[in-house]
């Protein structure tokens, strides 16, 4: 049996729920059975849009996590405009691999490669940078590159990633997001590249594949550019770097 106190408590709880206020503990003695309230919550959770986070919250969560990681900037690169009080300049974004260093600790953490990667990108002896005159640089053995494990690399001025394509071939992609130049990482569970800065995703083919944050790129993004690559007879995959 339920009493009038419990009825009043449940009614107050559903009113708060429907007006999008935080739930509050029921008054003493009126707590009763939580299940009708839980049921009301499950129903309200089916409202259109109920499961899409508000943009202000996604920014707040980013700042919170950033602070927790020790950055302390409390600045969300997603909300600012380059050149207007932004901590990271557009130049730094475009520097790609330099981003993590430029951004300090938290930037370094947020800029890390996504899960599923065996290790940090393979550092390659950079040699002299000659813009007009590239060279073929050996990166990895062809068998090290699987559909589940793309191989990231930094060679010369290029941050890229070697992928096993759907047809089984090998391709080299730029690892620099075509939005603002952060370096993408591989999300093993979803098998996509994800940009740590604003969440853009790219398929193994390099094609833009949406974002975890609805509405972020209404007109999409260009694909990750392809780099020239070749597989040598001994299985070494080389990329043409500048």
């Amino acid at each position: 049996m339920t009493g009038p106190d419990e009825d009043r408590a449940l009614e107050a709880a559903t009113d708060r729920l429907l007006s999008d206020q935080r739930g509050q503990p029921a008054p003493p003695g009126a707590a009763g059975d939580p299940r009708p309230h839980q049921l009301a919550a499950a129903l309200a959770g089916q409202r259109p849009g109920a499961t899409t986070p508000r943009p202000a919250f996604t920014r707040r969560l980013h700042r919170l996590i950033d602070r927790e990681l020790g950055g302390g900037r409390g600045e969300d690169p997603a909300v600012g405009h380059p050149g207007r009080g932004q901590t990271w300049s557009r130049r730094q974004w475009l520097a790609g691999t330099g981003v993590a260093v430029a951004a300090g600790v938290s930037g370094a953490l947020l800029g890390e490669l996504l899960p599923g990667h065996p290790a940090a990108p393979t550092p390659i002896d950079q040699g002299p940078l000659v813009p007009d005159q590239g060279r073929w640089q050996g990166i990895a053995h062809v068998e090290a590159i699987t559909a589940d494990h793309p191989v990231p690399f930094v060679a010369g001025a290029i941050a890229g990633v070697l992928v096993r394509e759907r047809g089984g071939g090998i391709a080299a992609l730029s690892a620099i997001c075509t939005h603002l130049g952060c370096r993408v990482g591989w999300a093993a569970t979803e098998r996509v590249f994800v940009c740590p800065c604003h969440g853009a995703r790219f398929a193994r083919s390099g094609a833009y594949a949406g974002t975890a944050w609805p509405g972020a790129y209404p007109s999409g993004l260009p694909p990750l550019p392809r780099l020239r690559s070749r597989v040598m007879p001994d299985g070494e995959v080389q990329v043409f770097v500048v």
Partner: peptide
């Protein structure tokens, strides 16, 4: 960034209010 939307949705379906 990859997981937050799914976690948010999972929780929102069960508490009902943003």
């Amino acid at each position: 960034r990859v997981e937050a939307p799914a976690i948010y949705a999972f929780i929102a379906r069960r508490v009902g209010s943003a």
